[in-house]
Design a protein around this nucleic acid. Structure first.
Lengths: 105, 105
DNA sequence: CTTTTATGAAACCATAAGGTATCATGTCAA
DNA sequence: TTGACATGATACCTTATGGTTTCATAAAAG
């Protein structure tokens, strides 16, 4: 699967988008993420795997825990794709992209 | 389904993203869109329905034809979500929100 | 009027996706 | 060492999704 497709796929599920919003505040272990949802840890773990495959999060081991972190570069494929529609979907997008690029440096 | 979810879902399929790129050039009928893919017209029509449900295109009748057009505002839910997501990188982006909101008017 | 042409709609199929349950493994704590 | 805890991995289930086929209908062409 292309990186672009993996990222769009990862964003397509509302649970996964919620997880990303959660990780915006601070890094979380799998169990911590799972506490916020009415589903099993196994299900949450699958979502985290999809997010990782899509490059939207990174995972590091800390003892027996797995700490999930938001990846700042993860949405690049999406922003790059949206860029193609600047002329149609307004220059709001190019503005967004410009600021994001600057912020990464 | 929420408008946001409908839009993210619509963008999750590579065929649908290709269709949007196609429509960037000019409006197309269902048959014209279908000519560009190795699948039946019925399958393409389903994709166009999903894109319409996601607010990314609009469809108007012209005789027996259905003309599909890119919707300039269709990407708004995604942009709005990305803005929220991007505050992870820098709170300075909050000023960007203001600029974007103003630009929409 | 008859024949194309463009689309709509429904049934059907195979696979992907989201979820659970269960068991195995590695690690922390007593 | 012995449990308890956090995660990994697999099998399995149900539904959604992407696709085809087939038939119906509306409009343009002759």
């Amino acid at each position: 699967m292309s990186p672009e497709q993996a990222t769009f796929r990862a964003l397509a599920d509302p649970t996964r988008r919620s997880i990303l919003v959660m990780l915006r505040g601070r890094d979380l272990t799998i169990s911590e993420v799972a506490e916020n949802f009415d589903m099993t840890r196994a299900a949450v773990k699958k979502h985290l795997t999809v997010l990782s495959d899509g490059g939207l999060i990174t995972v590091r081991a800390s003892g027996r825990e797995r700490i999930n972190t938001l990846n700042p570069n993860g949405i690049d494929p999406v922003v790059d794709w949206l860029k193609f529609f600047d002329t149609f979907w307004d220059d709001r997008l190019s503005t967004l992209k410009t600021v994001i690029e600057k912020d990464k440096k």
